[in-house]
Design a protein around this nucleic acid. Sequence first.
DNA 1: CCGTCGTATCGACGGCCATCGATGCGACGA
DNA 2: TCGTCGCATCGATGGCCGTCGATACGACGG
Lengths: 130, 130
Amino acid sequence: MTTIDLPLVDRPETGAVAGCCAPAAGDVVDPAAARDLARQFKALADPTRVQLLSIVTAHEGHEACVCDLTEPVGLSQPTVSHHLKILVEAGLLEREQRGRWAYYRAAPGAVAGLVDSVSTLMPSPATASA
Amino acid sequence: MTTIDLPLVDRPETGAVAGCCAPAAGDVVDPAAARDLARQFKALADPTRVQLLSIVTAHEGHEACVCDLTEPVGLSQPTVSHHLKILVEAGLLEREQRGRWAYYRAAPGAVAGLVDSVSTLMPSPATASA
DNA sequence: CCGTCGTATCGACGGCCATCGATGCGACGA
DNA sequence: TCGTCGCATCGATGGCCGTCGATACGACGG
């Protein structure tokens, strides 16, 4: 579960305030969808996790074990494991246990899902035609 | 200043641990760049802010004033202003004061910048060819 | 000139999060 | 079988963040 398809709901036409400008216009994201999307972004809202993603994807074979990640980020091993767990739960990384080591790899389609979500959120003429 | 160009630094070849797998491979994001990128994502890491972005972009003329945003998200006016300020500081929204009202609009290029950052962070064969 | 309206800022409070050391658990080597 | 190694989990702690009411400030109308 990596991509969020962002259901758009019709604004219920409040018809109240509207003393300054147009009351509403089109479709906005569902509150539940906003919550899910924010959760994905929250996984990226930490410098350590951004670094971890970068290191993993830049690593040989696009995978790395925890022992390779502890030193570059300069944090303790429990903290790194904690961040990796968050990235896995967000669908950005995948975990595979091979023998004694746990290998982390970029989840396929994670980037595409994120990009799609952003484009749906803020449709820009240069990014999305919708 | 919306886009972050993510300078890639050569890993300094630790040469130490490396008992389990390859020590390193290529280029990772600079810690400072990771911090800046995380700050951008942090602006999107809140359901309210995601909703605000969606409402503003879906609004008539792609702009909205605070009074139009308070009711849909169901929060107090100071809280909404607080979130809007964060979105502006992140380069995702632009603020323009016209008369008594403050109009917010999606910053041009914000989406493209974010998409580019994500693609640079996690180069995927389906998203980026670099 | 004064009242009202729309927003931003301030100060406070509650909750979540990043970080750590200590510990538990499974896997491998001797 | 026992020690060691790699990693996840636990419990605690300090700090940041979202939220609010109260308040200040600029703009417009009368």
